[in-house]
Design a protein around this nucleic acid. Structure first.
Lengths: 279, 279
DNA sequence: GTGTAGTTTGAATCCTACG
DNA sequence: GCGTAGGATTCAAACTACA
């Protein structure tokens, strides 16, 4: 199996996309990718959080919320249009037997789910990621928001030949059929990418184990996994680790500098500590 | 506090709606109710389930899915229109400080959530009901669908004076702040209404404890709780039990015959076994 | 090295009354 | 509507410091 990883700064539609990280706007790049290319798609789009004010903890320190430019949309309408655009292209580049995963929170997941259905995708499951250590609700005005939601879908209602590794999932769940409630810690500790000053590289890095489960559930070895919002390429790392191939697209090349460090450690097979890119 | 319960077969907009069960189409009935009437709304609308074929268990017995006439919609479009219609009326009859709960599954909750947001509702939480005893996926082609989703929202982003009994929730959760993942069994056993032949009275009866938590979280004693899709009036029973008042609307009078039996037992204060209407 | 106590922090739509 | 002052508010995991 192909083991080298390519960074593509100026994709022209001709370069080999296998095990490549393409820098660029995902919709524009996808338009250059031929139809029916991918076996599985994992997408972690912007959530459109719409934070109202600054939030302080009881000890007066400020909460470091998501204030990235890429998470800002003018309205639900513009978010919906964006969502429709990227989902349409994703649908086109998916093989007929492929499945799509999208992760989101209550801020955006209802928009995403509705649009998916409008585009003809057929939902197989909604999966709830239950966090063991979520941020508490400091003001005591709501329930602790301890979950995120993943939607797992096929391109069309008629599709029956998608991959679902039922037995592998059952094995992971101690011999009982895997349910749609998944328990994972948030991404933290050695796994969380930080610069020398301790600043998070990406404000919303996902735990590797979460994406590993999605990949092990819905792909076979050698399958080509696609992520249009790659960030620091957790999807690619999970795919590579389990002998799947990948194509990643990411707009911010800064994230890719760090992604490449992760792959470098993974290739060294430092499985004990490969998560720590600073070694 | 008013303790008698009224059944209203021909609502004209003038009858007292406190502790009443109104028979009729919820949209038509709501149009006769004056604005700003309710302190809290709990809605369990049709899920728009779309079983494609009949489903059989491994032992060849047929799964008794939801095939009621009231759960059939021609398309997402007609489901959306229906959803928009009832949500608009609900918004009007809610007091400004009121909150809305809607429960659904992946079949409909994305539609409901999007439309809520489009109508200006502001989501406070999505709550995941995690079932201890869900129906397994008999074919082994998906994850066990073990959850349903509740959306909790206020009428408008600006509203801050809604009721949230933080301390009561914290107490219920063993001294720690209540999270949005709730664990309850499905409605079964003595609580599940069945006729003499053992047939379920309502195909989607919700567990009382689930609705009790919603009511204890978001209402004060004496508040007026509204349910436009009352079914066998689990919402009314939960409200009554905790000294809240209620208004229920239900189209099928058959369900109300059974609801009244539940209230009768509740009034007898048979708290040990009042759930069993057949005693 | 080990154990304990203290500190930090995470996709967050997080207040209220009064002038 | 806005600005400001007052006051009530957090859980789990991982890390650091120090004995």
């Amino acid at each position: 199996m192909e083991k080298d990883i390519k960074r593509i700064d100026n994709f022209d539609g001709k370069a080999d996309i296998v095990n490549s990280i393409i820098i660029g706007d995902c919709i524009q790049v996808m338009k250059m990718i031929k139809s029916n290319s991918f076996d599985m798609v994992f997408a972690d789009p912007p959530y459109n959080m719409q934070l109202q004010n600054e939030l302080y903890r009881p000890n007066k320190t400020k909460v470091d919320g998501v204030e990235d430019k890429w998470d800002k949309f003018d309205s639900f309408k513009s978010y919906d249009e964006f969502t429709k655009d990227w989902l349409k292209e994703v649908k086109r580049v998916m093989k007929n037997s492929a499945t799509l995963w999208v992760i989101g929170s209550y801020h955006n997941i209802f928009r995403v789910g509705s649009i998916l259905q409008d585009l003809g995708f057929w939902i197989l499951n909604d999966i709830v990621w239950i966090k063991s250590n979520p941020m508490p609700n400091f003001r005591g005005v709501r329930f602790t928001n301890a979950t995120e939601t993943l939607i797992w879908a096929v391109k069309d209602k008629k599709i029956k030949n998608y991959t679902f590794n039922y037995e592998e999932m059952k094995r992971q769940n101690g011999g009982k059929q895997m349910r749609n409630d998944w328990y994972f810690s948030i991404c933290n500790g050695i796994e969380r990418l930080r610069d020398d000053s301790g600043k998070k590289i990406h404000s919303t890095q996902k735990p590797l184990s979460l994406i590993e489960r999605a990949i092990l559930a819905s792909t076979k070895e050698g399958d080509l996994v696609f992520d249009p919002f790659a960030g620091t390429c957790t999807t690619g790392v999970a795919a590579y680790k389990h002998n799947r191939r990948f194509t990643m697209i990411e707009k911010e090349s800064f994230y890719i500098d760090w992604a490449l460090k992760r792959f470098k450690n993974l290739q060294k097979n430092i499985f004990g500590n490969y998560l720590d890119v600073n070694r």
